[in-house]
Design a protein around this nucleic acid. Structure first.
Lengths: 144, 144
DNA sequence: TGGAAATCGGACAAGAATGTCCTAATATTG
DNA sequence: CAATATTAGGACATTCTTGTCCGATTTCCA
């Protein structure tokens, strides 16, 4: 569904949001460890998220990544997905046609419509702050 | 959503089903041309589908691939997807956790549930024969 | 003010997905 | 039976994704 890179991005963002609730900032090392993601690669992903304005990053000693609650409430999943994978997932054609729309639909177009709309709606209405709550309560998990 | 390979597979299968309605068999060359897919690669995809029992293939001159209507009605999209991509799309975890289930869910698990169920249901209830009808009527298309 | 701790970013490496090419096998047809 | 048309399948090539490494830069702190 999403690229592996995007999965790392989502995991990291939710985790950082959880720490952000306590005003804490996380280092790359902690993030990679807690999400079970390869460190160097995660660094790239975090950079992308920071450049996209989704995360705040601070360089230098005691630096790291953070996402304060106020901001986390405004960061919807679709922003993360879009920053990494683009919006192809919930906009592109299920059969891969470059131009597929209501006027010239692929055979799957109508059947896919609802699924895609559902997905898009879910991604647009789910914010990172909400997702971080379960993590904190211990009712959801980031590593197997 | 699906791999490119899987997209080719779906396109080809629907096309072949359309021809199958007239008792016709299609050659690789025709299939690749009509779906706008690379020929040699499409050959591999068709082989996979034939080996999976989704298509019937005939070797030799006047050979090709075919899918008679009776069979096309029984071939659901999920079979094609499963044969090529596996069932990861509508079974795997949205955040990529190897073990994610109701007992130990990822933060997205519940939010994803509905989308995945929708997708699974759509794939399981849509058969290739039905999809081929629109193509034949000219209300749906396989190439941009 | 210098060393340590951290992100940034570019270059490179490994692996997976996609795509091509060639030969073998098989069936049809003249 | 020979020539031709076609799928089967292995080996290889290319491109994209995923992943590593290293030096530069920035910031903190003793």
């Amino acid at each position: 569904m999403f690229s592996k890179t995007c999965e790392y991005a989502i995991r990291a963002t939710v985790l950082i949001a959880m720490e952000g609730r306590h005003g804490r900032r996380m280092s790359l090392v902690e993030i990679a460890r807690s999400t079970g993601s390869p460190q160097a690669f995660t660094a790239k992903v975090l950079q992308q998220l920071a450049r996209s304005g989704i995360l705040d990053s601070t360089k230098g000693a005691r630096g790291g990544f953070d996402l304060p609650p106020a901001k986390a409430k405004k960061v919807k999943l679709n922003m993360v997905v879009k920053a990494i994978d683009g919006d192809h997932v919930y906009k592109g054609c299920g059969m891969g046609l470059p131009q597929c729309n209501a006027r010239k639909p692929c055979p799957l177009h109508d059947h896919f419509q609802q699924v895609r709309d559902d997905l898009r709606h879910m991604l647009e209405s789910t914010d990172v702050h909400t997702l971080s709550l379960g993590l904190e309560r211990g009712t959801t998990y980031l590593k197997r």
